[in-house]
């Protein structure tokens, strides 16, 4: 009995000191300069977004202008600068979701963006692997060539892209054309980033695997890709975003409203004369939810990354 009692005592003591240590750590975190910095950065990031959020939830198409109370004190005046809708309403969201086939478009966008991510990653992983692991004539020039697509203004590519995709390939009004264009647009970034990450992966693992008789393909799938997970997560997110937010090509290539992607649907709210900014804000928030969800899902990969042991092989 005494034995077990001692055990429980130490248990409790350990638990207590554990909780205490945790509280101490949290308090220490909160009063550290890092926390202050993050808090400040968070505030700067959130403030303009608050305008979008409160416009979306205001149920109106334009926000009330800030009116500084004349005779109020410093803090009351400062509080007046925080954007809050006069009354909260879900009317904008209701209108966005019901007046147009918004969910349909969201689904279209998901298909297009996920396909873009898949195609883009397949093309860029293999190309980046070659650029990182092989030395061959034309390697440097090839890398720069990939960059060129980002150097030419997109607006001037419109007509030639239309000629190729719609007239030559006959891919007008089909998602395939969009997916191809988006994947290629995202390619330079993906190739460059992945090459950078592959470069940081030590060579020795592959060498020993090759000596043990593994094929290049096995090495690529079994060793390189798992090790490069953080990079693949970043580039995957990037390819997804490229397709997710693009508006002009999507609306020019598609001739059927049922095939529009969601950014095209969003732009219906903006015109030269009158723009329904409340609808646009609500739509923008709905559109960014999947991206946030995706980022949350990918966080695991971004963080877990490499353990020190795996790297040393």
């Amino acid at each position: 009995m005494s034995h077990s009692r001692i055990v429980t005592d130490t248990w409790i003591a350990a638990g207590k000191s554990g909780a205490a240590a945790r509280i101490k750590r949290v308090v220490g975190d909160i009063f550290s300069w890092r926390f202050a910095l993050l808090l400040f950065a968070g505030a700067v990031v959130v403030y303009p977004l608050l305008w979008v959020v409160s416009l979306a939830f205001s149920g109106q198409q334009s926000l009330q202008l800030v009116a500084l109370p004349d005779d109020a004190g410093f803090w009351r005046q400062l509080a007046a600068l925080v954007p809050l809708p006069q009354q909260w309403s879900l009317e904008n969201f209701r209108a966005v979701l019901t007046e147009q086939p918004f969910m349909r478009w969201l689904l279209n966008s998901l298909v297009v963006s996920l396909s873009t991510t898949l195609v883009g990653l397949a093309l860029s992983c293999s190309a980046a692997y070659a650029f990182s692991r092989f030395r061959f004539p034309g390697r440097d020039r090839g890398l720069v060539l990939f960059l060129i697509s980002q150097m030419f203004p997109a607006v001037l590519m419109l007509i030639p892209l239309y000629v190729i995709v719609v007239q030559w390939l006959g891919l007008g009004n089909s998602w395939l054309g969009l997916v191809l264009v988006y994947a290629i647009t995202a390619l330079p970034f993906c190739v460059w980033m992945l090459k950078g990450y592959f470069d940081t992966l030590p060579y020795e693992i592959e060498e020993s695997a090759l000596l043990e008789g593994a094929s290049r393909l096995t090495i690529f799938y079994r060793i390189i890709l798992p090790l490069a997970r953080p990079a693949i997560a970043v580039t995957g997110l990037f390819s997804f975003m490229t397709a997710w937010n693009e508006f002009i090509l999507a609306s020019i290539f598609m001739d059927d409203e049922a095939l529009y992607t969601v950014p095209v649907g969003l732009r219906f709210f903006v015109s030269d004369y009158a723009s329904e900014w409340g609808y646009f804000a609500a739509g923008a928030i709905l559109v960014s939810l999947p991206v946030i969800a995706l980022f949350l899902a990918l966080q695991r990969f971004l963080v877990s990354g490499l353990s020190a042991g795996a790297v040393k092989g």
């Binding site: 926390f35 990031v45 923008a284 559109v287």
Partner: peptide, 18 residues
């Protein structure tokens, strides 16, 4: 750090919204 996941999500928001 305390609230790391939250900060990480918060700070990418400008990229997520069109």
């Amino acid at each position: 750090i305390f609230g790391r996941t939250w900060f990480r999500v918060l700070l990418i928001l400008p990229w997520a919204i069109p």
